[in-house]
Structures are given as C-alpha cells and as structure tokens.
Design a protein around this nucleic acid. Sequence first.
DNA 1: TGCTGCATGTAAGCTGTTACATGATTTA
DNA 2: TAAATCATGTAACAGCTTACATGCAGCA
Lengths: 182, 182
Amino acid sequence: MPKKRILPFIILGIINNHPQITGREITAEFDTEIGDFWRASHSQVYPELKRMVNDGWIYDATSKDNAKERYYTLTDEGREILNKWLGQLVTDLPVHEDLFSLKLFFIKDKHDKRIPQLIARQLVLLKKDLKYLMQRRQTVFPNEKTIQNNYGHYLILARAISRTQGQIQWLKDTQKLLKEEQ
Amino acid sequence: MPKKRILPFIILGIINNHPQITGREITAEFDTEIGDFWRASHSQVYPELKRMVNDGWIYDATSKDNAKERYYTLTDEGREILNKWLGQLVTDLPVHEDLFSLKLFFIKDKHDKRIPQLIARQLVLLKKDLKYLMQRRQTVFPNEKTIQNNYGHYLILARAISRTQGQIQWLKDTQKLLKEEQ
DNA sequence: TGCTGCATGTAAGCTGTTACATGATTTA
DNA sequence: TAAATCATGTAACAGCTTACATGCAGCA
C-alpha cells in the first residue's frame, strides 16, 4: 500500500471554500492560510488538478478574458468525497519533524554552550511566528461575524497561537532555569 | 538543489551515543527514543550506513559470534561533522503536517457536529500520548544522575510533555466553550 | 527440525522538490 | 514596447514507503 495521499482532499476543501478558483490561487493558499500545517508547490497542484478533473471530482471552465486561466469547481461527487473525508476521524498523531528537538537530543552535557544558543534561536523564530499569527487573526477575523462564518479556521488559528505561546513560555522558563543553575 | 538530507546526521548522533551499534538497533531508535520527531525505516537506514562508511564518516566491524551483524562506530571525521551540524543554528520552524487542523480548517459552521467529534478524538490521542511520554520519562530518567548524563534528551522529553499538556488543556477549554454556547 | 525472531538487504513505486520552460497579461 | 508578473505546465531527481527476500540464531 502506498503512502496515503491527502493533497487531493486539501484541494477539494480549498475549491469548496472558493468556487471558480484558479490553480494559481490554490497554490497561493498553501503559502498563506494553509501554510502552517501543509505545503504544496504549483508543480504539485497542476497535475493533481488534472487528475481530479479526470476522476470527476471537479470540473474546469475557461473564460474569454484570460485564455490561459482555468476555473475549478466541485462536482457533486467531489463534494461527497470531501464530506466523507472530513467525517473520518483522525487515527494517529503527526510526527513533529523538528530540528530543534533533534539537535538537543544529541547534546548530553547540561553545560554545553550550544543548548542556550539553540534555545535563544528557537525563541526568536517562535516570537516572529507568534507575531505573524496574531496579526493574521486580526486581519482575517476582524469581527464576530467573520469568526462565525469560518469557525474551523478560527479555531485552528487560535490553537496555533496558544501552542506557540506555550512553547515560548516553556523555553523562557528553561532558559531561566539554566541561567540560575549554570 | 535537492531537499536537505538530515537522516545521516541523525544516524551520526545515534552512533555517537551508542558506539558499536548495529543497523537494527539504530532502526529501533526511530521506533522509540527519536520516534516523536523523526521516523526512518530499516530500508532507509541500511543503504545510508553503507554510504556513510563509503564517505568515511563511520566504520564497521564484524564479530565472530554473529556473522551477519555489523557494528558501527564514528570516525574522527564523522565526529567532526556531527559537532559542526549540532553547532549550526536552526533557520526555520517546521511545518506541522496535521490532519486535525486540516479538517477543522474546512468546516465553516460553528454548530457542525464534526467539530466536537474531531476534538474528542484528538483528546483521546493526546491523552494516550501524554501517558506514554510521562511513563517514558520515569523509565529513562529515574534519578537526577540519569538526567545529568543526557540533559538534551531530558529537555526535549520535558518539552514534549509540556506541549502535549498544553494542547490537551486548550482542547478541553474549547470543548467546554462549544458546549456552553452550543 | 520446525518455528519465531534477529539481521540485513533489494526493488518498485509514489510524493514532493527544484529547476526549466512557455506564453499571456498588465504596467511603466 | 519593454519589463514584470500572471498562469500553467514539464522534467529530473531525491527521499521515503511498502513489499519482497534471504539467511542466521535460539528455542521447543
């Protein structure tokens, strides 16, 4: 059995949220909205769209204005497949492929200077990420109504913020601990 | 430029922690200790070991007891490469490829029944994981001395526990919130 | 001596990345 | 009309997964 493909389901979800979307706009979603928990480049997206049209999950239309653009929309079958996928419960936690943990793992000595260095860098990265996430929450969800209209999206953004804050707090605590005991 | 390979560095780290280790034991590390933040199967490990011997990062020895087993140890060059890698600071945060977030993302309606279902399942998975992590902290680090001898490992285990607890708390809070407003 | 697990290895195939490539559209 | 960006597509290749395969060691 090959590795389970989930890219087509993500694309179904994107098209469902934005009917008449182009391949380029779908690709852009992976750089912004979805980028926190999945990545895909345009060279993955275009062939996938072709396959999905071929399988009858979506259909495409062209416009007179722009000869090259193709506008994709879900078929009934596609909508059905998306809903079925959304209803299937998750069976496993993801593996956090994390260079920070990996490097720490191999450092044995408590007083190794690389430990505070790695922590300091991780803090910089996480703080920058937190700032970005909070700014996005403000722009994407400026009022209660926008939250109600996209509740799942709101939830995971809130979750990402909470998680990042938690990690920052833990790193700060550890940093302090190491300094005190040094 | 191809995707950056980090598997050989992980293997260097493992061999450094356990000189005279076999390929099978290295593979086992990915199922236990390192499994939380990196995965690799034996069909990846064995060819990689061959390459690393070829490149002079490690050397292998055989035993009379077990003709098939090969015992790997770092060369000076390998040790140097490992330390250089450990000293290089991380430049990017990892992408959390996460089905839970992904599915929530595509559910718009606040009252969609799949939201509490997904959350409940995620709680089950995280609680199970937390239990496993805490049990491991107890067995791997039974006393202060074992902590001092493998401080980096201790840190990331503590971090994983903290992160998991944070996620559980957030999910519980959200679950409660949804129930109240239902 | 048959079975289970140890130990290593190879092959096929799929996913995803980077790079290369082309033409259309908009803007200066 | 030249440059930048839009929009799509293909090619080569690296990385990883699953499955297939072989022989040895220990045990009943």
